[in-house]
Design a protein around this nucleic acid. Structure first.
Lengths: 237, 237
DNA sequence: TGCTTTTGTTAATGTAAGGTTAAACCTAAT
DNA sequence: ATTAGGTTTAACCTTACATTAACAAAAGCA
């Protein structure tokens, strides 16, 4: 069973410490992107989705709090851990009320950091009441429950979906009525883009079409050379 | 608002080190009971409820692992932290698979210990939102009494459940209609996640299905690669 | 138009996960 | 020492998935 590694954005200006920390986290099966300052950190953040941000507070140009604020403007959900100097009191930190999930005084025990990360990730995982919306879709007369991997037609018997079927349909639903680029699915779901994965994806499209047949208003259209489009007719706009 | 201090059982044979550690923990607002060896540790454990156990591994008469095993028989939930010699490798420790929540190499940084304690307490606190003191469940036409380990059909003769059967069914019931991840049961009940424990779990699923057969509306569904789902049909929504 | 590339669909294949039953193994209690 | 209850391991079988192959049909392009 393969599980996707969690992605961490690490923003730390001290190159030595940053590199060591990055390596340590990667050894513990996290995907880590290391930015050397606040600017770069924000650029990287915009370019990708992260499960967690670890921000050094003391940085030139753009400090951790300012960066956090910008990040929050784009995404209210990512957990943030601040690395602070020993001296700082907690109440000082609270003043910035930017919604930190944790603070860690430098220097810190790397194991402690790991634990905090785990705890936060787990909390987020169980929190999912909030983002359950991302897992349930109405597609014409169908209901897709992407967490439990089933598709229901008119509230009847649910059809089980395989992981790939499920993820693909979910991606299409996320882009309902819009182009879902081939490449997006391939990189997100298959994590590889070549002739064979592409053919495999086509096979899955065929399967999904079969599942969706009961509702004639629901179609998966191909946009030649570009990707696919899940449309629900009558859902005009 | 008054909050009760957390209670810690400390089992450590070195009187000096033990006393120092005890004082340190008490200074940090924990109630600490200090036992000087494994025997005494177990006696004290039986006499009271603890939020956490800190066990030295290397002790005369009864080592920490043996003690932990006894503790686990009485209580599957208390978090346990082991104090180990530097030399011990983690995989050696895992062999004992007694469900440690953490290991700490002696000598260790007392602040690190504090943080680990905090982390564990917090984890327990959030865990228990879900599975707190719930021991009675209605599952279709069944009643599960998880404290007394029996399952009743239509209020008739109760079927006795073995500890593992019971815990597994309870976990499923806690997640009724929702995914109960395989991994969750394995780490919570078997305290180890490998091929064999996983197969063992499957055996238990089969047993539970047999028990639940009398009510056709109750099913344990598999979600391939993810886990199981206890559903009660007609309990729609 | 004819040729190439992309997509549609179905079937075949290989592997991993899960289902089930029975035997082996442990351990506590007799 | 024997036994009974509980659990794990083994063995064998079925189902679920993903990939690849094979061939057909569209779409784009020269």
């Amino acid at each position: 069973m393969e599980e996707q590694n969690k992605k961490i954005l690490l923003v730390e200006d001290d190159p030595n410490f940053g590199t060591v920390l990055k390596d340590y986290l990667m050894m513990n099966d996290y995907d880590v992107v290391h930015a050397k300052n606040g600017m770069e950190g924000f650029e990287k953040f915009k370019k990708d989705d992260y499960d967690l941000c670890i921000l050094d507070v003391m940085m030139p140009y753009k400090d951790g709090f300012t960066l956090a604020k910008e990040i929050r403007e784009k995404n209210t959900d990512v957990p943030i851990i601040f690395l602070t100097a020993k001296a700082m009191k907690e109440d000082v930190l609270k003043g910035y009320k930017v919604g930190a999930d944790d603070y860690l005084n430098k220097p810190f025990d790397s194991e402690v950091l790991l634990m905090k990360i785990k705890a936060i990730m787990q909390r987020k995982a169980t929190d999912s009441v909030a983002d359950s919306k991302q897992f349930e879709f109405k597609i014409g007369r169908f209901d897709l429950n992407s967490k439990l991997r089933f598709l229901k037609f008119d509230g009847g018997e649910p059809t089980k979906l395989s992981p790939k079927e499920n993820e693909l349909l979910r991606l299409l639903a996320l882009h309902e009525n819009d182009l879902m680029p081939r490449e997006l699915a391939l990189t997100k779901i298959w994590r590889d883009d070549n002739y064979f994965t592409s053919r495999s994806m086509d096979v899955y499209i065929a399967k999904l079409r079969k599942y969706l047949k009961p509702d004639p208003k629901v179609e998966i259209l191909n946009i030649h050379g570009e990707g696919f489009r899940l449309v629900v007719n009558g859902n005009d706009k």
